[in-house]
Nucleic acid binder design. Structure first.
Length: 625
DNA sequence: TGGGGTCCT
DNA sequence: AGGACCC
């Protein structure tokens, strides 16, 4: 993870800040601070007042707008990804990245279909990789007679890209600590050798990140996510730690991995959150559910360590399933937690996703209890949301002849994905107890509706689209959440674009053929042209359109995506919306039609009625029939 | 205690 | 739609 990321972003913008104690504020708390500030006693998630009392000289910058952090995070992420050979690079939050450097070989003798073996967790001999992975490859390059003068190759295609290193030594810290030179043992322990190489690669990446991007980071090196994360915490700013073998795959002896995990409090294990930790503590402490939370955050007074749970009489995956399971708890939680307690974690590092699953904007409030204020906030949040959709979901269209993309400011853009759903969430402030105490809860409530198509129409001014989103979607949703005219008091409002559906990357001729098909309605199409080669629902409709006649396609799609929202919008009596009434201002085509089509609907030549995003799939159906 | 995100039920 | 988890 990057060291005190938010603070580092500000320091990179303004290097003078590096020398002073710097804290980043969101609302009433310090969300992070640089190490200069930590030396003076400040820490994360500290109240502003407290921080000022302890360190009056602290420089405080506001960090509620995440744009700069998001941009920096993306840039650093792309940088790290550029080193990867397998694209298995995953981001967690803004400041944490996991890279899968593990070795994977395909053994043609074992199976016809590729069999993946994760070498660090086996004693499989090295190296005959059919597929090159960076650590495998570099293990293969070693000269067994001279580990001290090794060369790490960073590129499959360019042998000159790389760095010299000493493979007999570990880079950075080790756990447990030990003397660094173990060259005699190397040949006997392939896992250790790999960890050595990985530690040098990690160091190289850290140095590159620092020299080329200006950021320091802290890294953990091990064989799975759990161990890498935990071991990374040991030496914190600008450093790295490797968990040394033995890991105990076949040994009965206590191994380093188990010993290491054993010393953690159960709640510190990633994957064991507040609820699970409470249940585990209660079970081990026999009965009493652990008196806790005085007034402040976090830990309990009686510590329950992983060891205490793991070695508790009768403990097993099955027992844990009993202890932890219940309604709402994922199946297999017992096995999962049992694995974590035993230093085992098979969670994969997934390939990088280009588009997020969801985009949301939120703000919190001391008090928000009038409709006027709510309206103002909804406008601001919506505008931010639309801008974020532009930033994260829009791609430059390189193919000029591709047609249908909309010029904005001279450049053509296309949507990478379409959120199908807009969601409004609020956090109502808990009512006062009779005794006057506050019953704090962070629970949110939410309602969602189909994302109106007009938000994708780049020809329309963003402010107009924002206003329509507020009046046509968000206000009705708000009324559903809070039917009473008043009496509510919100501490948070969140607007999200969710259920992201990839625009089919298609790129083929299909898009053009579709466009031809609907030529006669070109004027109509134009206003929706943002949907473009719109296979936006290809996953769903792609299946349907091969099995059903076109009427069924249209009706099914309509039922799913349009009639529901329409009911919602018109069902709100107090807040008549413009979805039906205002259609007159969206074009004159509709008056020429016999029946009233909904705003977002389209009729094909064949008579089928469908939302715009279903057109591509519908077109393909025509082609096949 | 913030402003985000993911996955599961 | 909500809950639990993560940063």
């Amino acid at each position: 993870m990057y060291d005190c990321f938010y603070a580092s972003v500000f320091e990179n913008e303004n290097p003078e800040l590096r020398a002073v104690p710097l804290a980043v504020q969101q609302k009433q708390i310090i969300v992070t601070c640089n190490y200069e500030a930590r030396r003076r006693g400040l820490h994360k998630l500290q109240l502003i007042r407290e921080a000022k009392k302890i360190c009056p000289e602290v420089v405080i910058v506001l960090g509620e707008d995440l744009t700069r952090f998001r941009n920096a995070s993306k840039e650093l992420y792309a940088f790290l990804r550029s080193f990867s050979w397998n694209s298995k690079v995953e981001r967690l939050g803004f400041d944490e990245v996991s890279c899968d450097m593990r070795s994977v070989v395909i053994d043609p003798n074992v199976s016809q279909s590729p069999l993946l073996l994760f070498l660090p967790e086996t004693s499989f001999p090295l190296p005959f990789s059919a597929t090159y992975y960076i650590i495998d490859h570099n293990v293969g390059l070693l000269n067994a007679n001279d580990f001290t003068n090794s060369y790490f190759c960073l590129s499959k295609s360019d042998p000159t890209a790389g760095f010299a290193f000493n493979a007999s030594q570990l880079a950075g810290h080790a756990y447990p600590e030990e003397s660094n030179d173990i060259s005699g043992a190397l040949q006997l322990d392939p896992l250790r050798l790999r960890l050595h190489l990985t530690s040098h690669l990690a160091q190289h990446l850290r140095e590159a990140l620092h020299s080329e991007k200006g950021y320091t980071c802290t890294v953990g090196v091990s064989t799975n996510k759990l161990l890498s994360k935990l071991v990374g915490n040991l030496h914190k700013p600008n450093s790295q730690t490797t968990l040394l073998p033995p890991y105990g795959f076949e040994t009965e002896e206590p191994d380093n991995a188990t010993l290491f995990v054993d010393d953690h409090e159960v709640g510190k294990i990633p994957g064991i959150g507040f609820k699970l930790a409470q249940k585990l503590r209660a079970h081990v402490l026999q009965r009493p559910a652990e008196f806790d939370d005085g007034l402040v955050y976090g830990g309990t007074k009686e510590k329950v360590l992983v060891r205490d749970v793991r070695t508790f009489p009768g403990m097993s995956a099955e027992t844990l399933e009993q202890v932890l399971g219940g309604t709402g708890v994922p199946h297999g939680i017992g096995a999962r937690v049992w694995g974590l307690l035993n230093a085992y974690d098979d969670t994969a590092i997934s390939q990088a996703r280009d588009v997020p699953k969801q985009i949301s904007i939120e703000d919190s409030y001391i008090r928000l209890d009038t409709m006027e204020e709510v309206l103002k906030e909804l406008r601001m949040l919506s505008l931010s949301l639309l801008k974020r959709m532009h930033a994260d979901l829009l791609e430059d269209e390189e193919d000029e002849d591709k047609a249908e993309t909309l010029p904005i400011n001279g450049t053509r853009k296309r949507w990478l994905a379409y959120p199908k759903v807009v969601r409004l969430s609020t956090r109502p402030r808990p009512p006062q107890n009779p005794d006057g105490s506050r019953n704090r809860s962070f629970a949110r409530i939410s309602r969602s509706a189909p994302m109106p198509n007009f938000v994708f129409n780049l020809k329309e001014n963003v402010d107009i689209r924002c206003e329509r989103l507020v009046t046509e979607a968000l206000i009705p949703l708000f009324r559903k959440l809070h039917p009473e005219k008043s009496g509510w008091n919100l501490s948070l409002v969140n607007v999200a674009a969710a259920n992201m559906v990839d625009a089919a990357s298609d790129k083929g001729g299909v898009g053009r053929d579709i466009a031809k098909m609907f030529k006669r309605q070109d004027d109509v199409l134009k206003q929706w042209r943002v949907d473009d080669e719109d296979d936006t629902l290809s996953v769903e409709t792609g299946v349907i359109d091969k099995q059903l006649p076109q009427d069924a396609i249209a009706q099914d799609t309509v039922a799913m995506d349009v009639s529901k929202p329409d009911k919602d919008r018109t069902g709100s009596e107090d807040f008549p919306t413009t979805s039906q009434q205002s259609t007159g201002d969206t074009g004159d085509w509709e008056s020429e039609d016999e029946d009233m089509l909904d705003d977002d609907m389209f009729r094909c030549e064949c008579g089928a009625v469908m939302p715009v995003f279903a057109m591509a799939a519908h077109g393909r159906w025509h082609e096949q029939n």
